[in-house]
Design a protein around this nucleic acid. Sequence first.
DNA 1: CCCTCTATGGTTAGTAC
DNA 2: GGTACTAACCATAGAGG
Lengths: 233, 233
Amino acid sequence: MLPLLSNPSLLQRIHKLCFICLPGLTFALVMAPEKKSKGRQKVEIVKMEKDANLQVTFSKRRAGLFKKASELCTLCGVEAAIIVFSPGKKAFSFGHPSVDAVTDRYLVHNSSSNVNTHQSNETHHDSSLEQLNLQLSLLNHQLEAERKHGEELNEIRKAKQTQFWWQAPVEKLELQQLEELKQALVELKGKMMQHINKLLMQASNPPSLLGFTTTEGFSGPVVNYPNDLGHGF
Amino acid sequence: MLPLLSNPSLLQRIHKLCFICLPGLTFALVMAPEKKSKGRQKVEIVKMEKDANLQVTFSKRRAGLFKKASELCTLCGVEAAIIVFSPGKKAFSFGHPSVDAVTDRYLVHNSSSNVNTHQSNETHHDSSLEQLNLQLSLLNHQLEAERKHGEELNEIRKAKQTQFWWQAPVEKLELQQLEELKQALVELKGKMMQHINKLLMQASNPPSLLGFTTTEGFSGPVVNYPNDLGHGF
DNA sequence: CCCTCTATGGTTAGTAC
DNA sequence: GGTACTAACCATAGAGG
């Protein structure tokens, strides 16, 4: 049987969900897809460690940067220049109309009007050195505080993740809490079912799970559930 | 009825799919969302016509370009500099460690192998200021990141405290979480039943509340609840 | 080193305040 | 002009050739 959906990652998610929530489910609509690639992964913006990847990343990102610059020049009709030194100490440059033209203009501009905006940051050039130093230490202080705060919160989160609320003794729960809990669980179940329905619907011709009303009757059960969620939990 | 999925664009896609695949279907699970914006549109890379948009686009893309350059410098530990002249003839620059350092190095690099056109070693009294400015902006960036991180964590904590995790969108739950959740719910159910049995036993002449095991799925009704968690769930 | 491919994270056009 | 938001497009990490 052919997969009815061309998006493998969505299929994967559907299968995961069904495997967890509906054990024993014969998922006949879509075939289990195999992941061909992990796709793009999130990368922290810190110095890369692996030299092998570093070179590749540098090349890719340099190309992307130059392309962005080119687009900026074309779209807005402005002049720009970029100079980059590779990890191998080689110089790469981009310039529109040319690197020299832009650098010359920049030097003239700088020496004449003394205007300099730096690193997309609005630090004023006419600030005195002392003011800058002050800002620097202040920022260092704030940064440290924020970092500490972040770590603290991270600890809390980790603690909460390991020791979940539901592991607390049931006896401690009050009637009201129990009612709320029950209500929440019922809602959760509904959400789960609906979510799975939606994913299924995205995946293929919709199976006749609950939740739909259709003006034109359409065919019977497509998916077989040996273990109903209502009892499986 | 409330939308059960928080992602409007996904809802839109679902609705489209349903409209195509199931004409006449009454889609009861999710409400048809109205488009709030047209979203990002494709733009041709040619000179922009509308001056109003040009300025905005220039600012956005310049910021994006500088960010990309900053990431490149951080990730790969390289030196780079960018100079851009705005449509308003203003000069914007980015440099790591500084524009002058990179341009100087570039000129030396160029002159050592080629013709020496620019040996301008000017305004090096500015270098300390530039260094400070650079540190400042870098710190600002880090601080912003940390602050964002902290807020994020705070949000999570708050959400966990006031509005319990189960009210989070189901689609946000990952595989591991779902498995844990299921296990926890099974255990919780057992605990609940035991607790309720105990309470009932204490409350009055004990009704038939026996033989309840959590290891097996319990099929026989032990206690009659108008809204039985075991079945209503 | 170059390319391709996929899946996904990130950027940004359009809009409103 | 900035800032915030959304939705859509685009860039790129990771893997392979």
